[in-house]
Amino acid sequence: MLSPIKKTKNTGARLRALGVPAAAACLAVALTGCGGADTTLPSSARARPATTSQAARGGPVDCREVKCIALTFDAGPSEHSAALLDILKEKQVPATFFLLGARHAEKYPDLVRRMAAEGHEVASHTWDHKILTEIEPAEIRQELRRTNDVIERLTGRPPTLMRPPQGRTNKTVHEISRELGLAEVLWTVTAKDYTTTDSALIQRRVLAQADRDGIILLHDLYDGTVPAVPGIIDALKERGFVFVTVPQLLAPGEAVPGEVYR
């Protein structure tokens, strides 16, 4: 079984223990997740009528009218997350955090509370970063339920979104996600920040791929990532992008449990 994300001296090795190069290979083929799932675009979600109070969290930003992009961070919180939150607060940018439970959310509860208090979307990246398509249904439920419980306890609200590790998903994952009230969120932009500590390179990779309705995947546990964020934000704002959380990107529609968004 693949191990959870751990800090090491070699940034590239930090996710190789998880088989992340396989995820990179999938991205080279297509940005639809390795499970071959059908995905719903944000524009399609926005065309649906809102049916619950979740859609109301879209706030004043209307992504039907402005050029929106979502900044998302996986596998935190970490020792870098406080600095990241300071940057986001200064820049007045909301983000979506897909948190790991084991050794992350449980280790940094105050950071999880701060994320929610400062208007960021707090979501699940599973408990222990196990590849959901390689484990039994009972274990999938445990990976998701444990993280849901911790997030709800710390923020007062259960998550409605989750990102499957490596983007790997399948019909069983969809069904269990639907059962637990979770929609799956993939991405359209990856800096592959697990391969480098070069913040300038991370910034260039993001800017080269950014487009309207984009979902940017970064990891706030890597040394080169957080220093790249101010430049990413400033450059995209200069291009006319408005930063939103994933629920804001879909509003006035909403993320439907069991569906996959990209």
Rank of each mutant, 00 (worst) to 15 (best):
V256A: 07
L207H: 13
T195K: 06
V246N: 07
K107M: 12
Y194T: 12
Q92H: 11
Q142K: 14
T52W: 09
E65F: 01
D193I: 04
R113F: 10
R157M: 11
E134G: 14
E143I: 12
F97K: 00
Q166D: 07
L85M: 13
A251S: 14
D128C: 08
A13E: 12
P77W: 00
D211S: 15
E118L: 07
P137E: 12
F98M: 04
D211P: 02
T195N: 00
E79D: 14
N148H: 10
I232V: 15
I140Y: 02
R48S: 03
I215S: 01
D38I: 11
K171Y: 13
Y108Q: 05
V61M: 05
E259I: 03
D86I: 05
I202C: 03
L221R: 01
E238P: 05
V29T: 13
G181M: 02
N170I: 03
P165F: 09
T197D: 15
A37Y: 06
G119H: 03
L217F: 10
I232S: 01
A138G: 14
Q142N: 06
C63S: 12
I140V: 10
A22N: 13
P159I: 08
L218T: 12
T196N: 08
F73Q: 01
V189T: 04
T195Q: 03
M1R: 14
T133I: 09
A47V: 05
H129P: 06
K7I: 10
H125A: 00
A24N: 11
A28I: 06
G214Y: 08
K192N: 14
L88A: 05
I135Y: 05
C34H: 05
T197H: 01
G231E: 04
E121V: 06
V244L: 11
H219W: 07
G224R: 06
V61R: 04
F241C: 01
E65K: 15
Q54E: 03
L186Y: 04
L221H: 02
A83D: 11
H120R: 05
T52E: 12
Y194L: 06
T188D: 01
R64V: 09
C34L: 07
A30K: 07
E179D: 15
E79H: 12
K67M: 05
G224T: 02
T51D: 05
M1W: 13
G240W: 12
E121W: 04
P21I: 09
T197I: 08
D86F: 02
P158W: 08
C63D: 06
T188K: 03
T245M: 13
R141V: 00
R46K: 15
P109C: 08
E90W: 04
D234I: 09
A235M: 11
S124T: 04
A95G: 15
L41S: 15
E121Y: 08
S177R: 01
F73K: 02
